[in-house]
């Protein structure tokens, strides 16, 4: 079953064509990676899928429903959540509160209920707290719950961002370079965590420069180069694609090394 499908996405910033003719499908329950050199348009693609801005042309369909032009909060309500390339936690909120923000769309409570702290509201608040703690536990940071977001290391910020995205109970999770800035051990943990998230039924779309990680965990890979797809297929096929190797010429040792991902991760 196709969960997300993009049709002919094109994005221009002034004279710059950041994306052109990008079409792809994401099968439900799989991990799909989007790779490409710096400036290939990967983050731009995520911004379009999550509704940060509408594409210049083309459309995005989530489960038979067109979502192009929806606002980010509407896209989130339909089950797409994301993390950002530069972790963007809410600096003045605690770690737990950051993750509780992810519960926003799954809970109720307006001005009246919240300012009077009615019993129903207190219950909802407790449930949101428990759920958020659970998400923090999944990324292994429940013990940091009451810390300020600013007290976290870079890697921890990435993990809290991931917990916050999980708190929205997404169908599709967009991860923008989740391993950048992580050390080898943290990257290994991340690979396992992403595997567990997929096991729980969440489909994942992943942007990542760490080829070893990409080759290890993804079912399907889309390669972008200057905003256009140049290859798409399972890892084994992508690794041997001459066009991809040409694009990664400077980095092809990287691609070659990733043929033994187990070795590199250990």
């Amino acid at each position: 079953m196709v969960l997300l499908e993009a049709f002919g996405i094109r994005q221009c910033f002034g004279g710059l064509v950041a994306l052109d003719q990008v079409s792809f499908k994401v099968q439900a329950g799989t991990i799909k990676a989007v790779i490409g050199p710096n400036g290939a348009g990967k983050t731009t693609l995520f911004n379009i899928v999550s509704g940060i801005f509408p594409p210049t042309a083309g459309k995005i369909v989530l489960e038979d429903r067109q979502i192009t032009g929806l606002k980010p909060f509407q896209v989130a309500a339909l089950g797409i959540s994301r993390t950002f390339q530069n972790p963007s936690l809410f600096a003045h909120l605690s770690v737990l509160e950051n993750v509780m923000v992810g519960r926003h769309g799954r809970t109720y409570g307006g001005l009246f209920n919240c300012s009077l702290r009615l019993p129903a509201q207190r219950r909802a608040e407790r449930e949101a707290r428990d759920f958020a703690l659970d998400c923090l536990d999944r990324v292994g940071l429940a013990w940091m719950a009451s810390e300020s977001a600013q007290a976290l290391s870079f890697g921890q910020r990435r993990m809290v961002e991931l917990a916050r995205a999980l708190a929205t109970e997404p169908k599709l999770l967009l991860l923008d370079e989740p391993a950048s800035g992580l050390n080898t051990r943290e990257t290994g943990d991340l690979a396992k965590l992403i595997g567990r998230i997929r096991q729980s039924g969440v489909t994942i779309l992943l942007v990542e420069h760490d080829m070893a990680l990409v080759m290890e965990i993804s079912d399907d890979i889309l390669v972008l180069h200057f905003g256009t797809p140049i290859a798409e297929g399972p890892p084994a096929q992508i690794q041997n694609d001459p066009k991809v190797i040409a694009v990664y010429l400077g980095e092809d040792s990287n691609v070659a090394a990733s043929k033994e991902p187990e070795m590199r991760l250990r």
């Binding site: 509704g51 980010p72 989130a76 309500a77 950002f84 963007s88 936690l89 992810g102 916050r164």
Partner: peptide, 11 residues
């Protein structure tokens, strides 16, 4: 703290 992130989280 971050309007874009808040919006993407469903607010």
């Amino acid at each position: 703290d971050g309007e874009t992130a808040a919006n993407a989280m469903g607010i």
